[in-house]
Simulated assay, not measured.
Amino acid sequence: MEFDLHSAGILRMLIYPIQFDPEPVKGIDRVLKMVVFADHLRLQVPDVIAAIDAGLASNARLSELIPQGHNETVICGFLSAVRVRLESPPPAERT
């Protein structure tokens, strides 16, 4: 899986809003609203998932995509959790 500039851009958009959060995973709903489901960005969920997959499969240090204080484990955990949330049905559809 190739990690290209487009994927890196999507990952930067996902990481930026949590760069100062002490617990990034708690910010997932806010990030999804601000980035993935924002009308002005028009991101497609499959593209976001593909970018996360490409980033996680790469040898790139995702924690270095933007200046921030979280280590690689925290950033990869956050991105993995975002991916899981994107693949989960919305709360109204869960049974």
Score class of each variant (00 low, 15 high):
H6S: 14
H6T: 13
H6A: 15
S7V: 10
S7I: 00
G9Q: 09
G9D: 13
G9E: 01
I10T: 04
L11K: 08
M13N: 12
L14V: 00
I15M: 03
I15C: 05
P17D: 10
I18H: 08
F20Q: 00
F20N: 03
F20K: 08
D21G: 10
E23Q: 14
E23C: 06
E23F: 00
E23Y: 01
E23P: 13
P24S: 01
P24D: 03
V25G: 02
V25C: 09
G27K: 07
G27A: 13
I28S: 06
D29H: 12
D29G: 00
D29V: 04
D29R: 10
V31M: 01
K33R: 15
K33A: 14
K33T: 03
M34Q: 13
M34N: 03
V35R: 00
V36G: 01
V36N: 08
F37H: 13
A38P: 06
D39W: 01
D39A: 14
D39T: 06
L41P: 05
R42T: 05
L43E: 11
L43T: 09
L43P: 12
V45S: 07
P46V: 04
P46S: 05
P46I: 03
P46A: 05
D47Y: 04
D47L: 13
V48K: 13
V48H: 01
I49T: 07
I49K: 02
A50M: 04
I52D: 06
D53I: 07
D53L: 11
A54K: 06
G55V: 06
L56K: 06
A57K: 07
A57Y: 11
N59D: 15
S63N: 15
S63P: 13
E64R: 09
L65C: 10
I66V: 15
G69I: 08
G69K: 13
H70L: 07
N71W: 02
N71K: 01
E72H: 12
E72M: 10
V74N: 05
V74L: 05
V74M: 09
V74Q: 12
I75W: 03
I75R: 11
C76V: 11
C76M: 14
